[in-house]
Design a protein around this nucleic acid. Structure first.
Length: 899
RNA sequence: GCCCGCUUGGCGGAAUUGGUAGACGCAAGGGACUUAAAAUCCCUGGGCUUAGGCCAUGCCGGUUCAAGUCCGGCAGCGGGCACCA
């Protein structure tokens, strides 16, 4: 349904004039400008800066409005607040737009920035625009080029070969998102993996520290910390080296389950393992298989969900403890070269993936541990377990015999429970069939391996070094060159920075435009004066966002950032953004601060003290009979059925989706701001859901918020009685209604403050609406009511200010104030006034509510119990029963236990 | 495949962190005002029920005087997985 825009005549509160007026006044008075002031306590509020993709929609607006509420609240509480905004301006969409619309990425980007800045300003967000930065500006990226050279010097950046998705038709590297079902998104060609020499940053240097410091981030959501922990993926296990028949070099394997070594029935190496490459060179079938594996994508999801496949190399490995057992060595598509040593041993009985693999290639399955309680695995017990398992796998029995001829039953489900175990093997102190913990069994095996010199305890991490090279144009050039004569890598001298992107490029040609550029890449070595070729790769755009929060502290600094300014402002007190950045951006930033410290800078190691991950704004979607998305304006209802306006064909209502152009469910910012005003939009975005949860956008919600704005405006401009002068003293005696209103005001001040502090903005607004209801119900007639009404309206206006800043200024002014809400302190609650005198307590009988009693606050237990037992409904419920016990929770509840 | 999150009326959500489930709002129904509409204001509202009650926070179990909240199991939906940002 299209919105019915509000015309100024219809509204009593004229948001059009009002919002423009106050935005102008704030700008003129520099309300949002911030300067370093060590005498004042600082507060740094930061919302993740946007990629300038085109236009803002209300999903973006929510993110920034949440930050603005906090910034304005903290300012009112007396903090020196830094609240900056900028643009994460390098990235793939600019190149795509360039190709599609024949526009230069820079022009496209800067135009988007211009439009989006204007949109942000419409919302009345209190940014210090003097600090605005755009990462594609050479004044910005020159600093990160220098940082990179510092990293190179500190040994934190290095080059190595790494795999990329390669489109063989376009001759270009593809991002994971450009690979759709294994094909290039534009050409449809089957994507290959290719090896390129690329730059890496040594994030693994800080693996342990990055993990351990997570514990100190107590103002981060638990789930983000957990996601980072999983990402770092510390796993404790063992390195095992297997001798290979006919080869001198043993094969190194990492395992987290050394206790299952006796159940090993095969080894598997990654298709990218040097051994696989070596063997493929003289084995055509194997080479074909390796090639096929390389046609898969590079993402973990693709590799893990692909059908598990392998090929026997013909090599045989000797089991470290059972010299007569020869294990086949396979190349398998599910083994990742990047993790561990790129080789595993498979124990099918106790790993589901290994079992699937073993079933497929008919490899032995040998159980080594059994589910038991902590008792000895006697022959009788083993027989009973055998029976139990036989029954369990009756439908799909697969019989196996272990090395000593005992029957084992493992079907299609691996036994992976590690909480209780008995082992079947003998080793040193471990006697056959002893019950012992998995950890103890691991120790036994590892010690035995160490004695034989065939392994040791080891810790491996999932975290890999951060590959920062991108074969793309629209990014920050990597400031190095390679001498033509000897191929040596030479850093660009600092005095030659920045290495600027050339503007004259042709993006329509296949391949990397910088590589195709006729002149830019050719230069001379500053050391020898001989010809050199520039690095034509650019940085991953996460490079820019890993330090922008530092630049905001001193955006004009000749250095990347001013140490004193950073010392004052850092860390960011509250960072706000989407959960999609839970790992990469947030982890890279945490790495950057550490890397900077190691390369000559000095900053606090943790960049973000507090983190809030806000939910998405979702909106309804529509699709026609063919499944094509439709705009809501293309849909109407006839006879209760959804049909298209065009030809009346049936339409189905899809589920709520994150706003996106492709799903045609975007609600533009202008629709809201032009029709109802920025404040009304902000109110909806803040009130309908808790910030961290998804928000369902609806036009009805917008209209409801608009009604509230006008209701509030009428209460301020047309109070029940004329309000007393602004400086009138409180009357000596207040009527009960006036006293009740005061109590409500002071309770609300306390509650709203707590709610804002803890990001429960939706609840703060609910409390303000409750206060509004009490104000509306106050007649203004009784003794002191007019005075209490003024106090209430002023407090309400100040408290709604962070959410609806323009409205609050206008109302504040209408109440006769001649200063700004923006320059006024947060109202102070009188705790004595903010307390209820009477408390209504529930009375339960055997846990079921039977009545309520109203008592003075803090009434003692005896009083409460007496009142509860005298309550008529309670008496009836107790009829014929004997009271056994009475539980009284003061000011809360009474529970009478009776039988 | 692995990891994570979510699930409360017709709807968005509250619930002082174990203590009166449904605050506040949206949508709805009824009424007032109006020639009429819009706007505004007032009232009603989880379900079943004859009084009394009974049943209700995705499902099944458990702990407790007391469970939306804690524990165990299950289901459904959503998100992330290293070159989107």
């Amino acid at each position: 349904m299209p919105l019915s825009p509000v015309t100024p005549e219809m509204s009593r509160y004229n948001f059009r004039e009002t919002e423009a007026k106050w935005q102008k006044i704030w700008a003129e008075r520099g309300c949002d400008r911030t300067s370093d002031d060590p005498a004042r306590e600082k507060y740094y509020v930061l919302e993740m800066f946007p990629y300038p993709s085109g236009r803002l929609h209300i999903g973006h607006a929510r993110n920034y409005a949440i930050g603005d509420v906090l910034a304005r609240y903290k300012r009112a509480k007396g903090f020196n607040v830094l609240h900056p905004m900028g643009w994460d301006a390098f990235g793939l969409p600019a190149e795509n737009a360039a190709i599609q619309n024949n526009v230069h990425p820079a022009d496209w980007t800067y135009e988007n920035i211009r439009v989006m800045r204007g949109q942000l300003q419409l919302l009345g967000l209190s940014y210090d625009w003097d600090r605005e930065i755009a990462t594609c500006d050479p004044d910005y990226y020159r600093h990160e080029q220098k940082m990179f050279l510092d990293f190179v010097r500190a040994g934190l950046a290095y080059r190595k070969e790494s795999w990329v998705n390669w489109d063989p038709v376009d001759n270009t590297v593809l991002a994971n998102e450009q690979v759709i079902d294994g094909k290039g998104w534009r050409t449809g060609a089957t994507v290959e993996r290719r090896k390129l020499t690329q730059w890496f940053l040594k994030i693994t240097e800080y693996t342990d520290e990055l993990q351990e410091a997570l514990n100190g981030l107590d103002r981060w959501p638990d789930r983000v910390r957990l996601m980072q922990e999983n990402w770092i993926g510390r796993s404790v296990g063992a390195r095992v080296s297997f001798d290979i028949e006919g080869r001198d070099e043993p094969l190194e394997v990492f395992t987290t389950r050394p206790d299952t070594l006796f159940g090993a029935s095969f080894l598997a190496v990654s298709p990218d393992h040097p051994l696989a490459e070596e063997l493929a060179a003289r084995n055509d079938a194997l080479a074909a298989f390796v090639d096929e594996c390389r046609r898969m994508g590079t993402s973990e999801e693709v590799i893990e969900t692909a059908e598990k496949r392998g090929m026997d190399t013909g090599l045989r490995a000797r089991h470290p403890f059972m010299p007569d057992v020869a294990l086949p060595v396979h190349v398998a598509n599910f083994v990742l070269m990047e993790y561990g040593s790129g080789a595993i041993f498979g124990c099918p009985a106790h790993d589901q993936r290994d079992l699937d693999f073993a079933r497929k290639y008919d490899l032995p399955v040998t159980s080594v541990l059994w589910p038991t309680d902590a008792e000895m695995l006697t022959d009788e017990r083993a027989a009973a377990l055998d029976d139990a398992l036989r029954a369990q796998f009756d439908a799909d029995p697969v019989q196996e015999v272990d090395g000593r001829g005992r029957l084992m039953h493992v079907g299609r489900t691996a036994y992976v429970d590690t909480s209780r175990a008995s082992y079947r093997y003998d080793l040193g102190t471990l006697s056959d069939g002893q019950a012992l913990s998995v950890d103890a069994a691991k120790d036994v095996v590892v010690k035995a391996l160490e004695q034989q010199g065939q392994g040791e305890a080891a810790i491996r991490y999932r975290l890999r070094d951060w590959g920062v090279s991108r074969q793309r144009y629209w990014g920050c050039p990597i400031p190095v060159m390679y001498r033509v004569d000897d191929g040596a890598m030479v850093p660009v001298p600092e005095s030659d920075l920045p290495v600027e992107l050339p503007k004259d490029v042709d993006l329509t040609k296949p391949g990397n435009p910088l590589e195709n550029h006729p002149t830019w890449k050719h230069t001379t070595c500053p050391e020898t004066g001989k010809p050199a070729i520039r690095e034509t790769d650019t940085f991953d755009t996460f490079f820019e966002s890993s330090w922008y929060f530092l630049r905001f502290c001193s955006p004009q600094s000749a250095d990347a950032f001013d140490a004193q300014a950073a010392d004052y402002w850092m860390p960011v007190d509250q960072y706000i953004g989407g959960i999609e950045h839970a790992v990469l951006h947030l982890l890279y930033s945490r790495f950057f601060t550490r890397a900077l410290n190691q390369s000559g800078h000095s900053v606090a190691p943790e960049p973000f003290a507090g983190l809030m991950t806000q939910g998405m704004v979702v909106h309804e979607t529509y699709r026609d009979a063919d499944g094509n998305w439709l705009f809501p304006e293309e849909v109407t209802t006839i006879d209760g059925k959804l049909v298209t306006l065009k030809d009346g064909s049936p339409v189905t209502k899809g589920r709520l989706e994150k706003m996106s152009k492709s799903k045609k469910n975007v609600v533009g910012l202008e629709t809201v701001v032009d029709g109802f005003g920025a404040d009304t939009g902000r109110l909806v975005l803040m009130s309908d859901s808790p910030p961290e949860r998804d928000l369902e956008w609806s036009d009805a919600g917008l209209e409801g918020a608009w009604r509230y704005v006008n209701r509030l405006w009428r209460l301020v401009t047309e109070p029940a009685v004329p309000l007393p002068p602004i400086d009138a003293a409180a009357p000596n005696n207040l009527s009960p209604a006036a006293a009740e209103l005061r109590r409500e005001v002071h309770k609300t001040i306390l509650a709203v403050g707590q709610d804002f502090e803890s990001f429960r903005i939706n609840r703060a607004i609910a409390r303000l609406r409750e206060l509004t209801n009490v104000i509306a119900a106050t007649s203004g007639r009784g003794d002191g009511e007019a005075w209490a009404l003024r106090e209430a309206l002023e407090a309400l206006t100040l408290m709604i200010g962070p959410v609806m800043p323009h409205f609050a200024e206008e109302a504040w002014s209408a109440l006769g104030n001649n200063n700004l809400v923006t320059e006024t302190d947060w109202p102070v609650a009188d705790p004595a006034l903010a307390v209820d005198e009477q408390i209504t307590m529930g009375v339960q009988v055997n846990g079921k509510l039977r009545g309520t009693v109203t008592l003075p606050k803090d009434a003692d237990k005896t009083t409460a119990e007496g009142a509860a037992l005298a309550e008529p409904n309670v008496i009836r419920a107790l009829d014929g029963k004997t009271v056994r016990k009475v539980i009284v929770v003061p000011n809360r509840i009474v529970n009478v236990v009776a039988a």
